[in-house]
Design a protein around this nucleic acid. Structure first.
Lengths: 236, 236
DNA sequence: TCGAGCACTGGATCAATGATCCGGTCACCA
DNA sequence: TGGTGACCGGATCATTGATCCAGTGCTCGA
């Protein structure tokens, strides 16, 4: 004797309230992406489910598929969305080196603020936010007189370095899960005969300061880019 | 009237042949990992399934769980396994710079030979193969006179740089799938007003030579490490 | 004013997958 | 020869991404 359709049809009481009377704004791709980022921030990449995401949005899971083609779309959109927070220096407002440093540091900060993003870096990033920042990077380097093949090498090198650094740090800084790091430390201590240098000088031994390490490496790269640039400009 | 158990029990004909008479060697963690690598190489990370892996091994999928705790175990083991192919230079046989270059280049070659590996770099790598190579890296740097904080920065910088480079290249060199790259190129051409520098100097415009770009960046890093090392050794 | 069309929604459902339960089978040893 | 433990796999469960299709309400033109 159950109603054939228990959901949208039938009883007034069960019917969805009129659009205007609803508390939440209508669903939109933008709202989906915002909520996805929030969900990822709170629970990590592993727990992002279309169902869970829909629940947080107060809709059915299938509704999402009207606004978005696949789950990967959500991930791509979320990934690009967070880069909006990276401030783009005003072109020419400063030394090329200062500009690049600012951009790369901001890039890194965002990646670390959203640790789930590191795991998603293995997909083409072609969103508007990413492209705008790449544009600035290339423009700054070109403006500084860097030419091929150093230009591509510089842009790639910088990007790859940030990505690798963030990925590595995010891997070992899993939120408040210090257990694996501790276990790894102990493992190295127990096998100090096999890995003597790692056990004493390894990354897990000291209080490895990610920030200074990153800064040093970045400086090395910038030095190299700068020296090549000068050579190019001055050389006959 | 169907037999209650159609599988292991019952008819002699359906019974699994005695261990010795079987063609395949008995299942082992090692054999599983080897087959997993083969499967990953052939079909990519997305198509690695416990069922499919078991099928290739001629066993039931559940059998795998006796040798391995979870699917992630398989991935971790496969990831470490491929690094066995990275040759470790004989310590002290050459210039520290040559040794490091050899190791890092081998590292990169392996990552590119197994593109699926790039996507797995976001997990702690504590396998014996990885550790042995890290040991060499640290030992070589220490032997060259690099001290903290430059030591950690150097090791991290080099690792992060390879990882980032391989990840990026693997992302854009998806096997014979040139479609997305082509599409991206066209997209940039169509939006050359918004991304003027990218459209003309961007990484997708030229025949971006991954190898030379990588070599240049690596040289920059090594220059930086070397200069700091000399300064440390010579300075009072 | 009204009705048609379109933007949007979601319950039911499917197939694929990771993982577990539990009842087997086989080699080996005392 | 009897038993013990290493090893195997069919049935099964819960979860998840994705699709089908029957709706529902807003809007706009006649």
């Amino acid at each position: 004797m159950a109603a054939k359709h228990s959901g949208s049809a039938g009883d007034v009481w069960l019917r969805r309230p009129a659009r205007a009377a609803r508390e939440a704004p209508p669903l939109s791709r933008d709202r989906i992406v915002r909520e996805a980022v929030a969900l990822l921030d709170e629970e990590g990449a592993g727990r992002l489910t279309m169902r869970r995401l829909a629940e947080r949005l107060g809709t059915g899971s299938t509704t999402l598929y009207w606004h978005v083609k696949t789950k990967d779309d959500v991930l791509d959109l979320a990934l690009d969305a967070i880069f909006a927070a990276v401030e783009i220096p005003r072109p020419g407002a400063q030394d090329w080196r200062a500009g690049v440093t600012a951009l790369i540091s901001g890039w890194r900060a965002v990646l670390l603020e959203h640790p789930w993003s590191a795991a998603l870096l293995g997909r083409p990033m072609l969103g508007p936010n990413v492209l705008a920042r790449s544009e600035f990077l290339y423009a700054t380097l070109v403006g500084a007189g860097v030419t091929e093949p150093h230009l591509t090498a510089a842009a790639y090198g910088l990007s790859n370095y940030v990505i690798g650094s963030a990925l590595m740090q995010a891997t070992w800084t899993a939120q408040e899960e210090d257990a694996p790091r501790q276990a790894a430390r102990e493992f190295l201590r127990d096998n100090r005969d096999r890995y003597p240098v790692l056990a004493t000088h390894g990354p897990l031994t000291g209080d490895s300061d990610w920030d200074t390490s990153f800064a040093l490496g970045l400086a090395w790269l910038l030095d190299g880019i700068g020296s090549d640039e000068q050579r190019t400009e001055r050389a006959p």
